[in-house]
Design a protein around this nucleic acid. Sequence first.
RNA 1: GGGUCAGUAGCUCAGAUGGUUAGAGCGCGUGCCUUAUAAGCACGAGGUGGGAGGUUCAAUUCCUCCCUGACCCA
Length: 1048
Amino acid sequence: MLKNIPENIFLPDLEKEILKFWKKDNTFEKSITSKEGNRTFTFYEGPPTANNKPGIHHVISRAVKDLICRYYSMKGYQVYRKAGWDTQGLPVEVEVEKKLGIKSKSEIADYGEIAFNKACKESVFTYIKEWEAMTDRMGYWINLDDAYATYHNTYIESVWWALKNFFDKDLIYKGFKILPFCPVCESPLSTHEVAQGYQDLKDPSVYVKFNITSGDLKGSDFLVWTTTPWTLPSNAALAVNPELDYVKIKTSKEENLILAKDRLEVIKDEYEIVKEFKGKDLESTEYGRLFDFFNLNDEKKAFYVIPGDFVTSEDGTGIVHIAPAFGEDDYQAGLKYDLPVFKAVGKDGLFTSVALPYKGKNFKEADQDIIADLKASGRLYKKEMFVHSYPHCWRHHVPLMYYATDSWFIRTTDYKDRMMEINDTIGWHPETFGTGRFGKWLEENKDWALSRNRFWGTPLPIWYYTDDDGNDHYDCIGSIEELRSRSDNFDQVYANENELDLHKPYIDKVTVRSKDGKEMKRVAEVIDCWFDSGSMPFAQLHYPFENKELFENNYPADFIAEAVDQTRGWFYTMLAVGTFLFDKTPYKNVIVNGHILDKNGKKMSKSLGNVVDPMEMMERYGADVLRWYMISSSPIGNSKLFSEEDLMEVQNKFFDTLINTSRFYDIYSGLTGFEFSRDSIMDLEARPVIDKWILSKFNSVRKKYFELMDDYDITKASRIIYDFTLDELSNWYIRRNRKRFRNPASEEDKVSGYQTLFEILIELYQMIAPFSPFLTDRLYMSLSGSESSIHLSEFTGVDESAINIDLEEEMKLAQDIVYLVRSVRVKNNLKVRQPLRQILIPVLNEDVRKKLMNVKDIILEEVNVKELNIIEGDSDIIVKKSKPNFKSIGPKFGKDVKQVQKIINELNSAQISEIERTGKLSAEGFDFTIDDIEIYTNNIEGWIVESYDDITIALDTKIDNELLEEGIVREFINRIQNFRRNNNFEISDKVKIYYKTSENIYSVINKNIDYIKSETLSESLSGENGHDFEFLKSDINGENLEVFLEKI
RNA sequence: GGGUCAGUAGCUCAGAUGGUUAGAGCGCGUGCCUUAUAAGCACGAGGUGGGAGGUUCAAUUCCUCCCUGACCCA
């Protein structure tokens, strides 16, 4: 590494150098091996799928992961970081189908399962190069060489082990699930697919009469509304809301209809209300069915009224037709009341022979026939058409059916309460995520639909045989060894170890023996790939088959981080698996980051063309800048509106300031010959006030930083670093001390200054390093001369003894006064270079007076004024005023506050004196104490004043001759320095000065010639004419000035 | 349709356990400072705190409803 910090740093190039250094140095590896035996901090990597290019949204999660891991590493923990890849499931299959031009599930069979799965396996890492490049480039330290992949046999075996645990506890069962189903694909669609296929559809909306056959209402009709007439042949029940009011009406056509009172608007005829009752009074009422297609077996009861909370009075009639095979509410109600599941329509979307009149008709096309038949039988009350947005298959553009499908479930509802208890112990960041979004999601937990009728996934390890009575018997296999030992043909299917592939279709060939000796075949399904990733804590280590101790020491994770969309994804699946298997949370802390939108708040998508390429951003600004921006620009859990201008601002303000601050130290420590040494640290007490102050401020910031970081509040932590670096360090401490660093008053002064700055810089780099690991490493090594990376260094503790709150307050007071004086100067057109005589500051209490005296010199120097004088509180020229302290008078005077406010605002000086003296005052019938009022002053008689908060200053703006001359000299020096700077003279270059000016200014310059020489490093000043230089033209107080500098 | 988060200056964000002057940065205008600075400072323009109700002496902050955006789920 170079010792010196170069003048122009292009961050992207610097970062590439650092990357090379880290590789050569094995820095990442060292950061783990060097902590052997230390406390461990456990991190889990949520596996991404590498079958698509990484996007900018991946950078933010990875930046968060990396920074927390680096932070804990620098705190002395050993932090393993194992990468992982999600490699199975529908997302992979869909990509492969696209690539192969496959349009339906049946085509996959034609293509061949072996070939298809091979294609899936190969596609999984299509973009792994891009992923690795992005990961590497952004400085995300994770062990990619030792990555887990969910399709590995070892991984699958661990998942099988978990599944067997569930199975043995009777928590896996076979049931139905209503899924959006494409009749052409003959396959359910994932919600992601459904979301992209909504189209407007014109559908019938029919009101149908169901004849009541039991109870008081016998002979009347239930009026029922549906937009899916094709489901009516599969009707099993009607649902009403037990809490709603219902009425029986008699229409002008002599119809007796039952419907919700709030829905009477649907009645087209004249009517009168005959009777009113609650929904619950209707429960169990029986009715006659519309179609006679299904035989009712004796075990299941159908065609009666059930209660349903999902029934509303917002549309329809308040009475809902239930077809358990074709709707989620319907299905759930069917489960609850044990209704029969009638299916008049098959998976292909066609009516089956059960519904003979409609046999072979497409479900949507049959609507019209069914309506016609209902009309003929007098069951149709009325029919309308309406247009609505309805999901279509994105490949075939046909309307989807909601269809009950065979599925395997995990009975997560069995231990939902335990999951909620465990959730309460997780440290969610932001906190509201755990109680809000995730908590609410958990409350509504439903059994996990585990199986998929697909190809590329972890095979469900359940084998079955059917007994002579037609009942199925299931058994679950929990390991490869168990499979081998229970199978007759394992060795035939897998001739040797190398051929072992637990995927379909190979695994389907393996048969096992049941406990009673029957031959069992595997069920056809694979499992939801989310179960794979949810098993990651143990499956990545092939637990429990290997690494038992390692796993036990690393469960649960101390920390994970992903985006909000993992609510029902990884956050949930890990919790569901971990709660059951280990009765413990899988992770103790989570940082949830929001999504990245474009600068207009729109989602980034290829079709909108607003996608931001992370590699491009890093090529342009560098990973450090991008990472810092991601973390600091908005609260991590919020959606982030990505703006390149803001990225540039981070670079210009924060990073350039950081670099220049370091260069400042670099340059002047070199010029003054200072070398930092740990052996001769100057005592804090011996250092000047300004050094004590910056050290106090810095340690206060550090203290806050560690608190915030330990609480995972990374955004706030980054912001306090930013503010400190710019405001306190660069714009106050260094700017104020420039002269001192250039030209120290004494050896002690020099050592104190440089040591202070050095200590702060090194520790500041460390604080920034987890966020932006590149530049900080370069600056750290340059400054410290260390050969060892900053990421191998550890934080030193906060030096509490350096914190001096009084001192910090004093400096704050000084800064506030300086701003006020500058403001007066601007308003009165008085340049800062023009010295002024005095500032007057009224002081109402002793504490402020003391503070002020401590920082007097700093103020005077900063604002270029000769004297600072204090006016004591009892002086005649101070005009005191009072204002109410609402926190005190509010509770005390209640409704009278407004009146009291007026009284206090108008107290005269005698009254104010009285309350100051005695602490009490009675006025206009109210009794006040000193706590009720605040005394302030914003006026000094006879002076121009400026106030801010409770500080007021007056500036003496009269300029006498002495001040004027001094101002002229300063102006002159300024012109000289500008010349040097504009002509790129070195700081140490000695010069001769030539100038032309007015008589008046000439004489002032001549009087101060020695002072000017020393300030400008010049050997001679010549005010004589006769040179033909290109003079720099300028003016001082409106009088002409021309200068030229000659380098010696 | 349900849930979660967000809505504060043209833009990105602070802050306030309810207290009377709601702050920064960017951008814009004017002036100033500086031999570490693509920097900094001051002044100015820019806000009915998404909208409507309610509670309170006092609401941007608490409550209710509504609107908009993002995400999740139907």
